[in-house]
Design a binder for these strands. Structure first.
Length: 522
RNA sequence: GGUCCCUUCGUCUAUCGGUUAGGACGAGAGAUUUUCAUUCUCUAAAGAGCAGUUCGAUUCUGCUAGGGACUACCA
């Protein structure tokens, strides 16, 4: 029934704050699906809750997708001829459809105030506004038409509720989960139109918009599965079943450890972002970490997210956006929630960082160096990157254990490479590497090497190798580790010839002289 | 409490009745290395439980257990 229509999907967030990483994945799956079928991806803003509107959230969401490389075909800020795409600008449209339901007796007017309903819920256990209770409430079903008119005329606030007929098996055909059946008796008469702000609720706006915007597939989070039968019933009530979109409810993203879904607190606890971009809360002033600012590459975030809840099955996991579009299969998505494995996210970033030419690291690297008061050139910085990008970084985890991991961020570089730019402040003779490699006779040997280097004119890595190697064979001295102590201060860094070449003759000799003078061992 | 959804190595997952249950992250071991690494090789590691259908179940069905979501005039 929908197969002959052009595929049209949408991502429709509420501008209530920064975009959660789970929302990013939902948008990504919509994007992959749309691209794969040559369809359209629509960006709709669902701002029917005026009380939760947060300024800046909409721009934040748009900027997030721009950064991630997820492109929309139409919608807020993208144009298109199915607009407006902001629900707050579609009041009149919704009003018309609510009136249609009302006049057909498929919806009714209810005067019960929120307070009265709260009261009712406290009094009766499991109170639900439905076929079993609506006859005892104040609504257009129990009141006479005259009374209703009078109440409205006298300014009483009212909502419009959907009149659900009980005892029906409602079926939702879900691409991921198969046929989901629920009895309409357990559904309540959902509010379709709110009294407070004259706007529809999500349910009504969603169905009307998806219909008018010719959406063919609704791909959204699993939290919507329980209300999907209600949506099916709404399509029926409007007579739109022949063009009803197909549903696909995605599994949720779960906490890295423990129970429940992924929350902002988990990010704080383990030190990973749950938002694509840094977010400054306009009300509280609180700042939340973003993937972009933490040094993640957009390709890495996309790749990682794509594989949370879906997998192409092959052995390759590092996949570009284009490859993901090729391979993606909505019906192969897993049904169970996926734990958020932020360690693997770091690994993906490591992979994509390594793919980048060193010169592309330097803008970010330069910022870090400048923060340390170091001036350098992109060329020299790129040299350091090339020498150090395969190293690992030591860090302290949340339990206080020393751990090692691959370089995953440009910012990992600094603690590993300060000796390129700064001489050792002092020589730590308690350092295992220093003790092992700087013996009583070492100073004299280093002096010999220094004398040799003083006469060397070719200070390139190759030149150094050509001059030093014959000397080591002649004398039997194995100078590299002690030389490393002199230039680095400990057992770190690249090949010694490369390092000395980078530092240059003057700096190399200066550091050696200093080490010969300073280090004393017994 | 009610309704619905889910359940393969620690984690993400492959398998769409017949496999030595595969891969990746993480972990461990070894080799290589002028340091630390990289790299390479190897190892450990799983079908929640119980019934049933079947010649044969991880795969189908039911029950139990566990997990998740929803249960607003929020989305």
């Amino acid at each position: 029934m929908t197969s002959d229509r052009k595929v049209r999907v949408r991502f429709a967030p509420s501008p209530t704050g920064p975009l959660h990483i789970g929302g990013v994945r939902t948008a990504l799956y919509n994007y992959l699906f749309a691209r794969q079928h040559g369809g359209d991806l629509i960006f709709r803003i669902e701002d029917t809750d005026s009380t939760r509107f947060v300024p800046g959230a909409e721009d934040y969401i748009i900027e997030s997708f721009r950064w991630l490389g997820i492109k929309f075909d139409e919608g807020v800020s993208f144009g298109g001829n199915h607009g407006p795409y902001r629900q707050s600008e579609r009041r009149d449209i919704y009003r018309k459809y609510v009136d249609q339901l009302l006049s057909e007796g498929k919806a009714y007017i209810a005067f019960d105030t929120p307070e009265e309903l709260d009261q009712k819920r406290q009094e009766t256990e499991n109170f639900q506004y439905d076929a079993s209770t609506r006859t005892q409430m104040r609504n257009s079903l129990t009141l006479s038409p005259e009374e209703v008119e009078q109440l409205i005329a006298s300014g009483h606030q009212y909502v419009v509720r959907f009149k659900i007929e009980p005892g029906r098996e409602v079926q939702v055909d879900d691409i991921i989960r198969g046929m989901v059946t629920i009895n309409s008796s357990v559904l309540d008469d959902k509010v379709l139109f709110k009294s407070a702000d004259g706007l529809p609720t999500y349910h009504l706006a969603n169905i009307v918009d998806d219909h008018l915007m010719e959406v063919t597939h609704v791909i959204r989070g699993e939290e919507w599965l329980p209300s999907a039968p209600l949506h099916v019933l709404l399509y029926e009530a409007f007579g739109w079943t022949d063009t009803m979109p197909r549903f696909a409810h995605l599994p949720l993203l779960l906490k890295p450890v423990g129970n429940g879904k992924l929350s902002k607190r988990d990010g704080d606890k383990f030190g990973f972002p749950v938002f694509p971009l840094e977010w400054h809360d306009p009300k509280t002033g609180e700042v939340s970490q973003g993937y972009r600012e933490q040094g993640y590459l957009p390709e890495a975030v996309v790749n990682f997210l794509a594989l949370l809840g879906w997998n192409p099955g092959g052995e390759q996991e590092v996949l570009s956006l284009d490859q993901l579009v090729q391979l993606f299969d909505l019906s192969q998505c897993s049904k169970a929630g996926a734990r958020f494995d932020y360690i693997k996210a770091q690994w993906f970033n490591h992979q994509y960082l390594l793919q980048r030419p060193a010169m592309e690291w330097t803008p970010e690297f330069d910022k870090i160096l400048r923060a340390q008061g170091i001036e350098s050139t992109p060329e020299r910085e790129a040299q350091v990157v090339d020498m150090m990008k395969l190293k690992v970084i030591e860090y302290t985890d949340k339990e206080g254990n020393k751990k090692k991991r691959n370089i995953s961020f440009v910012s990992d570089l600094w603690p590993l490479c300060r000796f390129f730019f700064l001489p050792p402040e002092s020589y730590d003779t308690t350092d295992k590497f220093v003790r092992k490699n700087w013996k009583a006779e070492t100073a004299a040997e280093m002096q010999q090497l220094a004398d040799l280097l003083a006469t060397t004119t070719d200070f390139s890595a190759e030149g150094l190798k050509a001059t030093i190697e014959p000397w080591t064979e002649q004398t039997g001295i194995r100078p590299w580790n002690a030389w490393r102590v002199a230039l680095v201060g400990t057992g770190q860094g690249p090949n010694m010839y490369e390092l000395a070449a980078f530092l240059g003759k003057e700096e190399t000799l200066s550091r050696m002289a200093h080490a010969i003078q300073t280090i004393s061992v017994n």
